[in-house]
């Protein structure tokens, strides 16, 4: 059985600021990050859909200790966003100064663009990730 939404296709779309996911024909759940089957009912009757890329922040952190190779990026904010379609996804937060990131961020609405991680010697290439901004 073929993988419906590969990382390659997801990544290419994200670089156009389009967030792709999978919608289940059996239970209606939306799955992202993509998987072989529906994350809720394990059905393989799933189709690729474009998501709005909007949602609200459920949690966040400011990272001060970087992994090897990402020393120039700190401090940066990671956020978990509950998308309007239901699932959560992980991304970075763009227009907030890490020094002022507090619990007040939780519940704030965000919109999405993207940023490319150039990759390192372990990562099998580069890849885009969602870059969120607080809604104006």
């Amino acid at each position: 059985m073929e993988y419906k939404l590969t990382f390659k296709r997801y990544d290419e779309a994200l670089r156009q600021n389009k967030l792709l996911g999978l919608k289940c024909r059996d239970c209606g759940a939306v799955t992202i990050p993509p998987k072989m089957v529906c994350r809720q009912c394990a059905s393989s009757e799933i189709e690729v859909v474009e998501l709005g890329g909007r949602g609200k922040i459920q949690t966040f952190t400011v990272v001060n200790v970087p992994p090897e190779g990402r020393e120039s990026e700190v401090p940066y904010i990671i956020a978990m966003v509950e998308l309007d379609e239901g699932p959560w996804t992980m991304g970075n937060l763009d227009n907030v100064d890490p020094a002022t990131a507090t619990m007040a961020l939780i519940g704030k609405r965000v919109t999405m663009k993207h940023k490319v991680f150039p990759g390192d010697k372990y990562s099998a290439g580069d890849s885009a990730r969602p870059l969120f901004s607080l809604e104006a």
Binding site: P33, T59, V63, V65, P67, T89, M90, F117, S123, S127
Partner: peptide, 28 residues
């Protein structure tokens, strides 16, 4: 590497940051 290499690591996720996310979520 024990987070998702494609859908999490590009965000710069680290082992402490996973539990940092959970700490703020726990508080909320």
């Amino acid at each position: 590497m024990f987070s998702d290499a494609r859908y999490e690591y590009p965000c710069g996720i680290t082992f402490p940051s996973v539990f940092a996310l959970l700490a703020h979520l726990y508080s909320a």
